[in-house]
Design a protein around this nucleic acid. Structure first.
Length: 462
DNA sequence: ATCGGCTCGCGCAA
DNA sequence: TGCGCGAAGCCGAT
């Protein structure tokens, strides 16, 4: 069946079968983009459903068997559910959430929901788990299954290879940005969802979240973030606050962590509670209206972020030094046996027990809030390289700490940021101990350029 | 306070 | 084939 819907390189058919006759809905399986609005994937599902005169069912799940499942990640996702329930009801979209509380619970929800569906739409996302599921599950469903890139502004599919650095992808993005920097059209469902939610739907209200966490077989030793509550309403509130308070001083203070001038939206982008597209549009429009320059912020949000997605899609697995450019691999290898002084263990680093008060403060921010201020995260990573027995161990520790504590852990953006510390998307500099030609960063430099004392005080106070 | 050198390789101009 | 230049720098010379 030909589809007259705009796809513009965002949509890929994952299998080759016809819609099931008698299917009762089109299923959107939200693996990544846990939101109703500004979601190209759900918009595609709605177009498809309208053509078939069917309603849409939105499904998101949460499992205990997910690596590093803990109270921090679970609470953030659970906090987002009530917003989606409300919004789905307003638009006439079916909504089902399923929390697997035991590691032994069945993993068959998407199969059960697909059994009554005419077609399935899900996220095209360059993370290992999503890629693996999108290869494994669609062939077993027997109905058309589409993967839609709802994460990037310029679709990842626009590019044909791994880009070398920001300067190679930047002109390619700007050449087509205008046509992609447009709002996702509002959802209009011709057929509303009228059935009750399936019996396995997990009801989530704020007062039930503590019980849902306690009854889940997850790691309870990582507490919810002190700073970040999950959910779309909270994401939009933070975006609003960024526009009114920080956009105008972003260019001046984005590299002054103690000023807290950044958007701090990465947890919400990571869990899909907000889209980079709507953030970009809001920032662009607010800047135009108030005569502000937003170029620095948009460079990060669009060019740097989408370079990271390009790396995740086309590059080798980001958990190995093999993902680095040849010059970086060679120079780190050459210095792999350089003496480290001091040398810290993973445990010492995790507990923020180094001699360096700035580094300890950044690590405490990660432990407590689940996010490190962007500029200091680079310093955090550089020091781990300096203090670890080998670059491979440093990489494992950095990824491990993010996997366990960071609300933007496992995001393409985060992997790219971590690997940047090892030379990815960067260039060589003067040869030195341990780092070779990889860019070095020093406490002295941080003290010269930022208010280290103010930041350390902030972290100690809390 | 400011400046140049460090060092590689991509992409484009020629 | 040559040339310019690049995510957040460092360091020593002036």
């Amino acid at each position: 069946m030909p589809l007259s819907v705009p796809t513009s390189g965002r949509v890929h058919l994952l299998n080759d079968v016809s819609p099931r006759p008698g299917g009762r809905y089109v299923l959107y399986w939200a693996q990544v983009n846990r939101r109703i609005d500004s979601n190209h994937a759900l918009a595609f599902a709605a177009h498809f459903a309208n053509r078939l005169r069917l309603p849409v069912l939105f499904y998101e799940g949460l499992t205990c068997s997910h690596p590093h499942a803990n109270d921090r990640f679970h609470s953030f996702i659970l906090e987002g559910v009530p917003d989606n329930v409300k919004r789905a009801a307003v638009l006439g979209i079916g909504y089902v959430f399923y929390l697997r509380r035991k590691q032994t619970d069945p993993d068959d929800i998407v199969y059960r929901l697909a059994a009554d569906a005419a077609a399935v739409v899900t996220d095209d996302y360059p993370g290992y788990l999503t890629r693996e599921r999108n290869l494994r599950i669609p062939p077993a469903l027997g109905i058309p299954c589409y993967a839609v890139d709802a994460s990037c502004i310029v679709p990842m599919g626009h590019f044909t290879k791994q880009e070398y650095a920001a300067y190679t992808i930047r002109p390619k993005i700007h050449r087509v940005l205008r046509e992609h920097l447009r709002p996702v059209p509002p959802l209009r469902l011709k057929t509303r969802w009228t059935e009750p939610a399936p019996a396995f739907h997990t009801r989530v209200t704020p007062d039930r979240i503590p019980d849902l966490l306690a009854s889940s077989e997850i790691d309870h030793s990582v507490a919810p973030s002190v700073e970040f509550r999950g959910g779309r309403d909270e994401a939009k509130r933070r975006l609003r606050y960024f526009l009114t308070h920080n956009l105008k001083r972003y260019a001046r203070l984005s590299r002054e962590p103690s000023a807290r001038a950044t958007s701090q939206l990465s947890p919400y982008l990571h869990f899909g509670h907000i889209s980079s597209l709507e953030v970009a549009l809001a920032v662009r429009d607010y800047a135009a209206k108030h005569k502000l320059i937003a170029a620095e912020f948009l460079e990060l949000l669009i060019v740097r972020r989408e370079l990271a997605f390009n790396f995740a899609r086309f590059g080798p697995s980001p958990d190995s030094l093999g993902a680095l450019p040849a010059w970086a691999q060679a120079t780190l290898q050459k210095h792999a046996r350089d003496r480290r002084k001091p040398a810290y263990s993973r445990r010492q680093l995790e507990q923020a027990e180094t001699y360096d008060p700035l580094w300890n403060a950044t690590q405490r921010e990660l432990l407590r809030d689940g996010l490190i201020q962007g500029y200091y995260r680079m310093y955090w990573g550089k020091k781990i390289i300096e203090w670890c027995a080998s670059p491979q161990e440093a990489l494992e520790i950095m990824i491990g700490l993010h996997d366990r504590y960071a609300l933007d852990g496992r995001d393409p953006n985060t992997y790219a940021n971590i690997l940047w510390c090892f030379g990815l998307h960067d260039r060589p500099w003067a040869e030195r101990h341990v780092f070779g030609a990889v860019r070095y960063m020093s406490l002295q430099g941080m003290q010269r350029k930022t208010d280290v004392d103010a930041y350390v005080r902030q972290m100690n106070k809390a």
